[in-house]
């Protein structure tokens, strides 16, 4: 498994919201430009450690944040 994954969102607003929720939860995260191989959107997404995916899903569900999908970071 790749060491990092990225969470893709429908709205750039959700990515900022997510980054804040993850920060509050003490989960390592970084906002990065959306990789072209994943989407043609021009904004940003949130990169996380792949090991944290279960915790991240929990935080997003609890916060009510909608996301499109989680993909491997290459």
């Amino acid at each position: 498994m790749n060491a990092f994954s990225v969470i893709l969102f429908y709205s750039a607003t959700s990515s900022i919201w997510t980054a804040r929720l993850l920060k509050k939860a003490g989960i390592e995260r970084k906002m990065v430009p959306i990789p072209r191989y994943l989407s043609s959107d021009c904004g940003y997404c949130v990169r996380i450690k792949s090991d944290d995916i279960p915790r991240v899903r929990e935080v997003l569900e609890k916060g009510g944040v909608e996301f499109a999908r989680i993909e491997a970071w290459k």
Binding site: I16, P33, G43
Partner: peptide
């Protein structure tokens, strides 16, 4: 420009708009 580019200043602008939200 908030939400339009992936660079730091766009992210910072997005942070500001989100704080207002």
């Amino acid at each position: 420009n908030p939400g339009r580019s992936g660079h730091q200043l766009s992210i910072d602008a997005g942070e500001i708009v989100f704080s207002a939200r």
